Amino acid sequence: MTAPLIDVDTLHSPARRVAILNGFGRTLGDGIIGLQALHLAMRLGIVPSRPTLFRLAGFGPMVEAVHAAADIAEIRILPPAHARPQTRFDAANEFDQVIDVREFAFAADFQRTSMIDFFLRRLGVDPQLLPSAFKRNTWLAPRVTPQPAARARGHVQGYVLVCPRASMRIRDMPDEIHDAILRQLAGRCAVVTQGHVPDGLADEVAHAPECKALAELCALVRGARWVISTDTAMVHLADAFGVPCLAFFPTHRPEWRVRDYPRCVAVPLRSALPPGLEFARGVGDLALARRAWFPNGADLDWLKRVIDRCRAWHEPRSLPSEMVT
């Protein structure tokens, strides 16, 4: 939908009424990053204070909670009938400008670019003018009430948190990879996983039950020494709370997701899938995504080397960003 023309004299007026449609997305990760873009656009005066975010409902408690934490905007529900950009937004006349990001996940410039840059451009900000540090997820932590540190096998903090599941099945970590990570770490450090604990590891690996509240999930991340995760929202939460992260990318180039995260070590997995594929088109895509985790078949020495390298960090919270290939 084309935004209405704006009088240049009112462009930076705090009284300017701005609506953002589908702000921001259907997943926790999209919400964290999109709201950081909005936070920056408001600080720069490109978007006035308290814009109205119209978002679709029904995408789970964490997505609801991250938008509820965004006190920088008024949140309203976008009617399902208005979910597609081909549909005229009936309330457009109530606003001086409508920024339409409906169905952005299907846009080619979203699938193959940095997420934060995509959202900044949609909000009218040239991302090239901003330093990388501005693009980190700084908006969230001050708005989450601190919770008691999560415990892992009696350790108040300092555990390794393993996160094998993504919002999209195509990015899930295979069970064999998850099990290999847990077995390599077990007995060497406190380990917590959001996935299933394999047989024989119940005394050495703790299972993190599903978090019921955003503050609880953030406490789980905040209490970790480092996070090992597939490409999912936990990677963005790790950045938000300054926790080092080892992240695997089966479908996207890492610079499209974690380019601005100085404490993230990114592992791109080579696959035959089209780069930036957001949704599996069928079981064949799921098979190709799975195959990317096994470049040498059942031989997982590559994974062992990556884990050993990360375990060798002496001061993991001060490592520079790097790419593991």
Rank of each mutant, 00 (worst) to 15 (best):
L185S: 04
L185A: 09
A186F: 06
G187C: 14
G187L: 14
G187E: 14
C189K: 10
V192S: 05
Q194P: 11
Q194R: 08
H196N: 06
H196V: 10
P198C: 13
D203R: 09
E204L: 08
V205S: 03
H207F: 08
A208C: 11
P209M: 15
E210G: 13
C211R: 08
A213F: 12
E216T: 11
L217Y: 01
C218T: 01
A219P: 00
R222F: 08
R222E: 10
R222M: 12
W226G: 01
D231M: 10
A233N: 04
A233L: 03
A233M: 03
H236T: 04
L237W: 02
A238T: 07
D239Q: 05
A240C: 12
G242H: 14
V243M: 07
C245M: 04
H252A: 08
R253T: 09
V258P: 00
R259W: 04
D260C: 05
P262I: 05
A266V: 03
V267K: 03
P268G: 06
L269I: 08
L269S: 04
S271V: 01
S271P: 00
A272V: 14
L273G: 03
P274G: 15
P274M: 15
P275D: 08
G276R: 03
L277E: 07
E278K: 14
E278P: 06
E278V: 09
F279K: 08
A280S: 11
V283L: 15
V283D: 13
V283Y: 10
D285C: 11
L286A: 06
R290I: 09
R291W: 15
A292C: 11
W293D: 07
W293R: 07
P295A: 07
N296P: 13
N296D: 13
A298G: 15
L300V: 12
D301H: 09
W302L: 03
R305S: 08
